[in-house]
Amino acid sequence: MVERKRYDNRLGFWGWLGGGRWGFERYVYTLHRVTGLGLLGYFLLHILLTTSRAFGEPAWTAWMDRVSGPVFRYVFEPLVFAAFVIHGMNGIRLILVELGFAVGKPEDPVYPYRTSLNKQRPLLVAVMIAAGVVLAIGGVDFFGMGH
């Protein structure tokens, strides 16, 4: 067979954003990735930073002073908290979905098709509402009460 020139039409990273019909789950999938990466980055720093408490009070207090400015208190910390709440609540849904417990039983495809996405969507809405409630409580703590 003659070797023919082809055009590599792979979407690449653009495909993480494009290519589909953009159901609600696609946005949540992206959000889950972004929050996960953010949490991991924070967590690795967090391990190193909290190690200072092994070296006694002065080291601990010095580090805590360095990371307690308004940028940390009102931007980074709330972001980490929000990322955890969203990632965690959505994670509960993903555990149920990915272990096949929330996707429903296979059914005959009759147009208009209803898929497993429809089956798990109430759960998705529920965990997002739960996340919203926890975020509201967190908001009171972060921004509402004086320090």
């Binding site: 910390e77 908290f81 955890f84 709440v85 409580i137 967190g138 009171v140 703590d141 972060f142 009460m145 320090h147």
Partner: peptide, 9 residues
């Protein structure tokens, strides 16, 4: 998180 961040509430 409850201990560290909801300490006021």
């Amino acid at each position: 998180m409850i201990v560290m961040h909801l300490d006021d509430v």
